[in-house]
Write a protein that binds this DNA or RNA. Structure first.
Length: 313
DNA sequence: CCATTATAAAAGTGTG
DNA sequence: CACACTTTTATAATGG
């Protein structure tokens, strides 16, 4: 299992590969993840509120992340990052931790850990052969032939994705939870077509778009933030979120007053770095919770919601 | 349910 | 005619 931790912004991701590709079964992979979680949820840290096994059953990798909401639990006394360093694999880049300490100015002096969810991965590829859409529509499983759009949609159960096929052989696949599972899905789609008798190849696979989301443990003063940052645009009449574009990485963030942030970018890595980039910028405009009871209740709701998702280890 | 965001693809429409 | 947009679709998150 590899553990990635950023110190610029406290994003923690556990990537635990499993399945045929790494020769591990889920049962063998999950225990270390459980231990990692256990370490986080040890008495001192009472605020592990979320962990997602999003791509757990999709072949490829488990992206399991934990989230600690700073300032919401009075009994939190210790930084979670201390616990994180105990992981078997060292973080990919470990800067001097003391240098980032002030970035996350938690109300308790605790550095919060931000959970990054990858919600959607879009990819495209080409099977390099003409596809008889009508035939696929008639014989395929879980397919819909849209004649007016010259397109067939095909749904896979594992990984859970929807693909659009064109007669040219070009295919777009949406709905994956990781870049790896997107590729697995793409190959399985190609395989399905191959079994139907098409002489498929697997070419030009690429990740075209990724949506991620996370939740910062504080409310954000959107007006103040926009005043300072020129890359931000805010039209509350149109949309409740601030749009922030990072040209360099082609990432676009939607920042909401509640502390929720969504990011669209060309890759998971770009999504992650966008979150890291934006964290200190919005942290500067965090609201004291007493100034924003609405946001506070939103936070509480989020915790309730995510707590329900906790797996029963 | 609607808007926003990004992105591919293909078909349709518009302009020089 | 050749590009350049525009529209449609799927997906998922967020807030109103």
């Amino acid at each position: 299992m590899t553990c990635y931790q950023s110190f610029n912004c406290p994003v923690v991701m556990f990537n635990a590969p499993y399945g045929p590709s790494c020769g591990k079964k889920m049962e063998e992979t999950v225990p270390p993840v459980q231990e990692a979680l256990q370490a986080l949820s040890d008495s001192t840290i009472s605020s592990v509120v979320s962990n997602s096994l999003s791509s757990y059953d999709q072949g490829g990798s488990i992206v399991l992340s934990t989230c600690i909401y700073n300032g919401l639990h009075p009994d939190v006394k210790q930084s979670s990052s201390t616990e994180q360093k105990e992981q078997e694999d060292p973080p990919q880049h470990k800067d001097d931790p003391s240098s980032e300490a002030p970035i996350a100015q938690g109300t308790n002096g605790v550095e919060p850990v931000i959970n990054l969810h990858i919600n959607n991965v879009v990819c495209s590829f080409n099977v390099r052969c003409h596809l008889d859409l009508k035939l696929i529509g008639l014989n395929g499983q879980n397919v819909e032939y849209r004649r007016e759009q010259n397109r067939v949609t095909l749904k896979l159960r594992k990984p859970h994705v929807t693909a659009s096929l064109w007669s040219s052989g070009k295919i777009v696949c949406t709905g994956a939870q990781s870049e790896d599972s997107a590729k697995v899905a793409a190959r399985r789609i190609a395989r399905v077509l191959q079994k139907m008798g098409f002489r498929v190849k697997f070419r030009n696979f690429r990740i075209v778009n990724v949506l991620g989301s996370c939740f910062f443990p504080f409310a954000i003063k959107l007006n103040g933030f926009c005043m300072k940052h020129k890359d931000a645009s805010y039209e509350p009449e149109l949309h409740p979120g601030v749009t922030y574009r990072i040209k360099k990485s082609r990432a676009t963030l939607k920042i909401f007053f509640t502390g929720s942030v969504t990011v669209t970018a060309p890759s998971v890595d770009a999504v992650r770095s966008a979150i890291e980039y934006i964290y200190p910028l919005v942290a500067e405009f965090q609201m004291k919770r007493e100034e924003c009871p609405d946001a506070d209740s939103a936070v509480q709701e989020e915790i309730m919601k995510q707590s329900e998702d906790l797996p029963e280890f």
